[in-house]
């Protein structure tokens, strides 16, 4: 029987946020394949994150209210005045 290396919480986090190296990802997915309960939980966590991202993506597409644009325009001149010179820059 092939020994599976332990999967850490960091591995699961990295899997969920897409930060695993391809090699480590293969190892983690193999190990999950041998642990159905853990795999199911990770799949559920992934689905939760996908749902949250769907909500977030939807919110990003809302138009910006005029009052915020007006704030930027009211200060147009001062917004892009040159930065104060800092010591050493």
């Amino acid at each position: 029987m092939k020994l599976q290396p332990p999967i850490t919480d960091d591995d699961i986090e990295a899997l969920l946020t897409g930060h695993l190296s391809p090699a480590r990802r293969r190892v983690v997915e193999d190990a999950l394949g041998a642990q159905p309960d853990l795999r199911r939980r990770v799949e559920a966590l992934q689905a939760d994150q996908d749902a949250l991202r769907a909500i977030a993506a939807d919110l990003l597409s809302e138009p910006i209210p005029d009052r915020f644009l007006a704030l930027l325009d009211a200060d147009a001149a001062s917004l892009d005045r040159p930065a104060r010179r800092r010591h050493g820059t």
Binding site: A56, L59, L60, E62, I64, F68, L69, L72, L79, D80
Partner: peptide, 13 residues
């Protein structure tokens, strides 16, 4: 100004 404008949707979200 443009940099700030670009961030408005995410800030709002």
């Amino acid at each position: 100004r443009q940099a700030l404008l670009d961030e408005l949707p995410r800030l709002r979200r």
